[in-house]
């Protein structure tokens, strides 16, 4: 962070920032995971599941592994059940207050996602970005849902944007906004594993019949 000159301006700027930070405890650096924890956790490879002979059991186990990604804060933060996204590993309410609006990009005339989030992460300002930055539609809300409920929702073409299973696999494995989860910028814990591994798990789950965890 850069400091402006000297004197009153710097004092004012400093206190403005201090007010912002005092008012929003979610902004404190301490909310971010410590560097050691931020290293991406791994995902088990698809081959680890081959020994599960029962197809449904294998599908469930594969989905539970993929669920480590789906339920990571990098994914969940933009799949809120309400109107406001969350942020940080603690999934605190997004600061400033933003709402989904009709297109998942902010209220009309209000704060649009693109006021702060641009085409790429900008680590100097600690602001993440991606060309597709937006909230998931409300029918794709994941927060507060069990993994089984998320699974059923993902499979349901009425709730997943009309995707077939093949399109769903492609989306998980290739979509660049999904891919942001593994390249989230400084100070954010990446989603576990890699997008490639995640895509393979989802594909293997689909190939095994796409059974969902109970509950």
């Amino acid at each position: 962070m850069r400091v402006v000159g000297t004197g009153t301006l710097a004092l004012l700027a400093g206190s403005l920032a201090a007010v912002a930070i005092a008012a929003y405890p979610g902004l404190r650096r301490a909310d971010a995971a410590p560097e050691a924890v931020r290293m991406a956790a791994g995902l088990k490879p698809v081959t680890d599941f081959a020994r599960i002979k029962n197809k449904d059991e294998r599908a469930v186990a594969l989905f539970e592994e993929a669920g480590k990604v789906l339920q990571s804060p990098r994914c969940m933060n933009c799949h809120p059940a309400g109107d406001r996204p969350t942020q940080t590993d603690k999934m605190l309410p997004h600061q400033p207050l933003v709402v989904r609006g009709e297109a998942g990009m902010g209220a009309p005339g209000g704060l649009a996602c693109t006021t702060c989030h641009h085409e790429a992460n900008f680590d100097a300002a600690r602001v993440p970005g991606n060309p597709k930055w937006q909230l998931a539609p409300i029918e794709m809300a994941w927060q507060g849902r069990s993994l089984g409920q998320i699974c059923a929702q993902i499979k349901d073409s009425k709730l997943n944007g009309g995707k077939t299973m093949a399109q769903l696999v492609h989306h998980m494995a290739e979509d660049e906004l999904v891919g942001w989860g593994w390249n989230p910028g400084a100070g954010r814990t990446p989603a576990p594993g890699t997008q490639k591994q995640f895509g393979e798990l989802i594909k293997a789950w689909a190939d095994a019949g796409a059974a969902c965890p109970k509950g």
Binding site: M1, A13, L16, A17, A20, I21, P96, A125, R126, V127
Partner: peptide
């Protein structure tokens, strides 16, 4: 255009 926080939190630089 003013600098307040540098981290997209205050709006002074809009």
């Amino acid at each position: 255009t003013k600098y307040g926080c540098g981290v997209a939190q205050c709006g002074a630089c809009t």
